[in-house]
Structure formats: structure tokens, C-alpha cells
């Protein structure tokens, strides 16, 4: 009969930066639902053994100011914070901070000899960037990063968001998705399932992600 022991290898990492809108318009039910969704996302990833060993989550919030409230960490190494609202919508600054964090983390992976999956940035917003925000510049930056495979970029629009502006920012291969109502829980369930698939995939593989029908609506 065949038998044997396996060595204790560490897993390769996959970074997901959540860029979350905490502007005033997210007050009340939206922020409550978003917080609940984040908690459930944390629980779902924790339950998936491989994803919990591979996925590093980081959280950037943007309102009147931009903050990194969670540095990249495996889900077992942090507790999901509770978000509170603050003012306007520095969306572009938030995404730019996330892009910088991706580059810094990749450099750290390389310097410490770690393999990694292509990082992803997930933007969630219910509004449109403040008037002084450089949407065009961000759009160019995101598209270049997408073309050179620096990271993948997904955006989720919440009730009242500006679809045209968000479409301008997103790369053509990942257009913005529109959240039905405040179904954050369903979205984060989908995200954790998708991450489960991504972190078990080979580079370049056609990924069959779960259907989005439970939480999206068409936006024309």
C-alpha cells in the first residue's frame, strides 16, 4: 500500500484591498448593512481553510479623508473593524492609496521570497468622487495597471452611485457591478466564494465565478 507524510509548506498569498465609501450618504441603513456584510465576509473566509491561509485582506476607507484602517493580514490575524461615516467622497485618493499598498505589498512579497497571486482591489461606493478628484487620471492609472496585470480591479455601485463615472474608472473587462438594494451580505458571500476559487486557480485560468444574480441589478 502507499503511504507517506507531507511537508509543512507555507501557502502563497493573495492580497485583496477593500476600498470602502464611508461618506455621509452611506449613513444609516447602508453603513449598517456594509458592516454586517464585512463581518460575514470575515467568517466565510475563515471557514475556507485554503482561502484563510492565502487571502490577505486590507481595508481603505474614504470620506472627507482617506485612511488605511487595516493593513494586509490573513483573516485569522485581525478582527473586522466597524466602519463609521465621515463627510465627502475622496474616492480617487482612496483607490490610489490602495494601488500604492498593492505595490508595497508585492515588493514585500518579493523581498521576503513569497509567491503571490495577482492582487485585487474591490471598490464599494454609493456616490461620485468629489469635484476636485482626478477621475480621468485614475482611469488611466487603473487601465494601465489592468493591462500590465499589476492587479485586478472590481467596483460595486450602491444605490445612488454615478454609473457613468464608475464606468469611466473601471477597465473594460471588469465594468462596475450594481448592488441591488443593500444586499451587502449577499455580495460579500459571493466575494468570499470567488476568492475561494481565485486562490485555488492557476494563473491565466478561465475562472468560473459564482453567478452574481443574487445581489446585482442591471444598470443602463
Amino acid at each position: 500500500m502507499f503511504t507517506g507524510e507531507s511537508p509543512d509548506n507555507y501557502e502563497q498569498k493573495c492580497l485583496c484591498v477593500l476600498v470602502l465609501d464611508v461618506s455621509g450618504s452611506m449613513g444609516g441603513e447602508p453603513i449598517r448593512q456594509l458592516n454586517q456584510g464585512l463581518q460575514e465576509f470575515h467568517q466565510e473566509v475563515t471557514k475556507d481553510f485554503l482561502a484563510s491561509q492565502r487571502l490577505e485582506v486590507s481595508i481603505v476607507t474614504f470620506g472627507s479623508s482617506v485612511k488605511c484602517i487595516q493593513d494586509p493580514a490573513l483573516v485569522g490575524n485581525f478582527e473586522m473593524p466597524t466602519l463609521s461615516i465621515s463627510g465627502s467622497t475622496k474616492l480617487v485618493d482612496g483607490v490610489r492609496l490602495a494601488a500604492d499598498m498593492v505595490e508595497n505589498r508585492k515588493e514585500w512579497y518579493r523581498n521576503t521570497g513569497q509567491n503571490y497571486f495577482r492582487p485585487m482591489i474591490v471598490l464599494i461606493t454609493d456616490g461620485e468622487p468629489d469635484g476636485d478628484q482626478d477621475v480621468k487620471g485614475l482611469s488611466t492609472q487603473i487601465r494601465q495597471a489592468n493591462d500590465s496585470k499589476k492587479f485586478t480591479f472590481w467596483a460595486l455601485g450602491v444605490q445612488g452611485y454615478n454609473h457613468q463615472k464608475l464606468s469611466q474608472i473601471c477597465p473594460p473587462n471588469t465594468p462596475p457591478l450594481s448592488l441591488a438594494g443593500y444586499k451587502f451580505s449577499e455580495f460579500f458571500k459571493w466575494l468570499s466564494n470567488s476568492i475561494g476559487i481565485i486562490t485555488k486557480s492557476a494563473e491565466g485560468e478561465r475562472l468560473l465565478l459564482p453567478p452574481v444574480s443574487g445581489w446585482t441589478q442591471m444598470e443602463m
Partner: peptide, 19 residues
């Protein structure tokens, strides 16, 4: 490979992962 080879270990002296 992860079941049969040592491919991703941690050197705590140098704080690096290596294959």
C-alpha cells in the same frame, strides 16, 4: 508539489520564505 516537496519554508533568522 506542496504534498511531496519542500517548496515554501520560512527562515526565521533571515525573516524570509524560500523554496
Amino acid at each position: 508539489e506542496k504534498a511531496a516537496f519542500e517548496v515554501n519554508l520560512y527562515n526565521s533568522d533571515k525573516s524570509i520564505y524560500y523554496d
